[in-house]
Design a protein around this nucleic acid. Structure first.
Lengths: 217, 217
DNA sequence: TGCTGAATCAAACGTACGTTTAAAAAATAC
DNA sequence: GTATTTTTTAAACGTACGTTTGATTCAGCA
């Protein structure tokens, strides 16, 4: 195989295995075999198993978050001094995921599944991941949601954003299985369509009437 | 230690380890040590590692699904010949999870996390789990949602139910981490409150206006 | 052509894995 | 109180793990 492509092939195989088996379930022996390289390649190029998966996440997540911030900024410009439209906020949060999943025009379902995995990873891995990549973006979206929200207390905004993120992550983790029976098989590759539906769902959920927190039943 | 309690202690330890490390990441050596029994106990009482985790899921999920079906039936009775109120459908789907998590009056957050893990487990495990425990319940709720839905095409109903389930599973997987910064620490143990908020969120999302599927932007 | 640094390789490091075995111990039945 | 079954135990089964090592290969350049 051509030299210089080893790192890329390792990252590609890592995405596959990580999506299917998670961090602890991924074997470096299987991974390097699938990548067509030697077992020692991972430690040579990345330092360790954990560093490889971390680098994979960095490469994937950072462009998404950059894209998110740009879309949010564009929506801010569009809105002027008024609050941003809720639809634009969640479009800025969801759609970059679909854009990142695109590879040669076709969606990379493995990447979606990997993204959905992060949430249930063991605490050590998760904590490092989240503090490394997400604090700035999350705070930016939360403060914009608070400006947009129709009189919701901040803690309620956080709850609803939490549900929105949960729905996204759950949908990503599940998407690769949607073809089997649940929905039309044709739509499996229409990640954009899924994310648009999800945005509409989440926006409506976010606008749910607020009962003041002490409602019964 | 008292005899006869070994199985129970194994199941309890299994829940802990499975929630934290997943199926492939759980070590039978650590698990049996935590349960205060011998390494061979798992294979003696359950047959294999996989069978132990399967049995754990069965014990936890079956009562939830029974509870779900009973609540759905009660809502059906209440509604008479009219469609069931959307809030009652999702209450029947969400609340039994919180009830199952209750142990001696306090919520068992580990169980929630375990439940949230199932969705991103490897395909072999997931497939077996889902086909074993969920087909009947899912179809029952879907058909009831179709009766209740305001003119939504069935495929759209499935999409929105999928998002609702995703939000639930994501929220369960994340809940144990909510105390740190995102929301009020006091609410961490208020699983019921979380599920009620989630139900309201999901019901509103389910009622999102339907654009006919071909809408732009 | 010979040198240099990066990249790859097979092999071995020590450790941990899930499972099996056969003997010891405890509980139950007669 | 002995016989029988159920449960627990320590030890070993073979396999796989992530990482390290030192030799080998290969490109680029003098």
């Amino acid at each position: 195989m051509e030299p210089g492509q080893t790192k890329e092939r390792l990252l590609q195989a890592a995405e596959q295995f990580y999506a299917e088996h998670g961090f602890e379930g991924t074997s470096m022996r299987e991974l390097t075999a699938a990548a067509g390289t030697n077992l020692a390649a991972v430690n040579y190029h990345f330092g360790s198993k954990k560093a490889l998966l971390m680098e994979l996440c960095r490469i994937r997540i950072e462009p998404i978050n950059q894209d998110r911030m740009e879309m949010l900024e564009a929506a801010r410009q569009k809105a002027g001094s008024a609050p941003i439209l809720l639809e634009d906020i969640f479009a800025a949060f969801f759609f970059p995921v679909g854009r990142q999943a695109l590879q040669d025009g076709k969606p990379n379902l493995t990447f979606l599944r990997m993204a959905g995995r992060l949430i249930s990873e063991n605490d050590e891995f998760y904590e490092e991941m989240v503090t490394a990549f997400f604090p700035v973006v999350v705070e930016a979206f939360l403060s914009e949601l608070e400006r947009t929200a129709p009189g919701l207390p901040p803690v309620e905004v956080r709850w609803r954003f939490h549900f929105a993120v949960s729905a996204l992550v759950g949908a990503l983790a599940q998407h690769h299985r949607m073809g089997s029976s649940k929905c039309s098989e044709l739509e499996l590759n229409d990640v954009e369509g899924m994310l648009r539906r999800l945005r509409d769902f989440v926006c409506a959920g976010f606008r749910a009437p607020y009962e003041g927190g002490e409602a019964g039943q």
